[in-house]
Simulated assay, not measured.
Amino acid sequence: MVKMRDVAKLANVSVATVSRVLHNPETVKEATRNKVLSVIDEVNYKPNMLARQFRRNETNIILVVVPSIINTVFSGIIEGIEYEAASHGYRVLLGNTNRKVENEYNLVDLLKKRQTDGMILLSERMDPNYIKSLSEEYPLVLATAYIEGLKVPSVSIDNVSSSREAVEHLISLGHREIAHITGPLQFAISKGRYSGYRQALMQNNIEVRNMLVQEGDFTFESGYNQMLKLMAIEKTPTAIFAANDEMAMGAVKAAKELGLDVPKDIAVVGFDNITFSSKFDPAITTVAQPLFEMGQKSMKLLLQQIQGKPILKSQYILECELLVRDSCGGKIKEKVMNEEIST
């Protein structure tokens, strides 16, 4: 069956241009429009009728697919989505998948049945080719993750450089035995943070020890359990970089139960800057993501597609910030240095 991307390839235009010819032909130059229509006739392309009717049957509802509503990272992004959506007269329908990919595929039916005008994915669990195929027929934005080679409108951060900065901070404090509790390594986010960890060590001539890398699943419990494993090996780490704050907090709990002081005996750094990270004891040093802004930008990109406007740039990477708190010992070092300067 001929698909929209086939028409785009033969006409030497983007898929978005073919979509505009079908939905908003007045926005496309006459010469380009005629070329696309000629190819459509030549290959007997039959557009998805649901997609063709999409603009004429708006629901003013957008679907946000969330792996877990318990995770406050997603709630921060959703806040930004809802703010931008409400300002344009849209409502947000949350689809909580409980981290099950089959639930994500089921939620796509809402999009295909025109019960929602577009979808924002806060997950990368579905097959990338399937996501790409969906994006060619329906308004779709991938938020939080950028999948290499996947040309789908996306909003994310640079997980590699942000993680590298966090680990380099630990190195600047004198640590060389630095462990990493990763997220699930089948996901691009986890791979990016692991890559940043490796880069920081290698660029500072520090050996990457496989025993110091343990895979978690972004939960408090996995941070706790992986920390116990790390502290049971012969040459224990002096610092931990956890791929999110929940695992960092789990690691701190395990360390305390082992009779260790954080950060005097072992330093801990997390990622995300969830609300509780600043209130935890000790307060977690972390990488702060611009969650609200990520949500806002994702909704703006989705609205552009719903309104038939061209997407001039498909990948947006927002800036992060390393927040130094008590769990890594950085505050203690700053205090000592300031005291030395004052004397």
Score class of each variant (00 low, 15 high):
Val13Pro: 09
Val13Arg: 01
Asn24Cys: 08
Pro25Cys: 11
Glu26Cys: 03
Thr27Tyr: 13
Ile40Cys: 10
Glu42Leu: 13
Lys46Arg: 15
Met49Ala: 11
Leu50Cys: 14
Leu50Val: 15
Glu58Thr: 14
Ile61Ser: 09
Ala85Phe: 06
Ser87Met: 15
Asn98His: 12
Lys100Asn: 08
Glu104Ile: 02
Leu110Asn: 12
Thr116Gln: 07
Gly118Tyr: 00
Ile120Val: 10
Leu121Tyr: 02
Pro128Trp: 01
Lys132Ile: 02
Lys132Glu: 14
Ser133Asn: 10
Leu140Phe: 03
Leu140Thr: 03
Thr144Phe: 07
Tyr146Gly: 12
Glu148Cys: 04
Val152Trp: 00
Pro153His: 07
Val155Gln: 07
Ser156Tyr: 13
Ile157Pro: 04
Asp158Gln: 04
Ser163Gly: 06
Arg164Cys: 15
Ala166Arg: 02
Val167Gln: 05
Ile171His: 02
Leu173Arg: 03
His175Phe: 00
Arg176Pro: 13
Ala179Ser: 06
Leu185Ala: 00
Phe187Tyr: 09
Ile189Arg: 03
Ser190Leu: 12
Tyr194Trp: 12
Tyr194Ile: 07
Tyr194Lys: 14
Ile206Asn: 05
Glu221Ile: 12
Gly223Thr: 04
Asn225Ser: 13
Met227Tyr: 01
Lys229Trp: 00
Leu230Val: 04
Lys235Gln: 14
Thr238Asn: 04
Ala243Pro: 09
Glu257Phe: 08
Leu258Glu: 06
Leu258Pro: 04
Leu258Arg: 07
Leu258Trp: 06
Gly259Leu: 05
Asp261Phe: 14
Lys264Pro: 07
Ile266Lys: 02
Ala267Cys: 07
Thr275Arg: 15
Ser278Asn: 12
Ile284Arg: 14
Val287Leu: 04
Ala288Glu: 12
Pro290Cys: 00
Leu291Val: 10
Ser298Lys: 11
Met299Phe: 04
Leu301Trp: 02
Leu303Glu: 09
Leu312Tyr: 12
Ile317Met: 07
Ile317Leu: 12
Ile317Val: 14
Cys320Leu: 09
Cys320Met: 02
Glu321Phe: 09
Val324Ser: 00
Val324Arg: 01
Arg325Ile: 10
Gly329Pro: 07
Lys333Tyr: 06
Val336Asp: 06
Met337Glu: 11
Glu339Pro: 05
Thr343Leu: 15
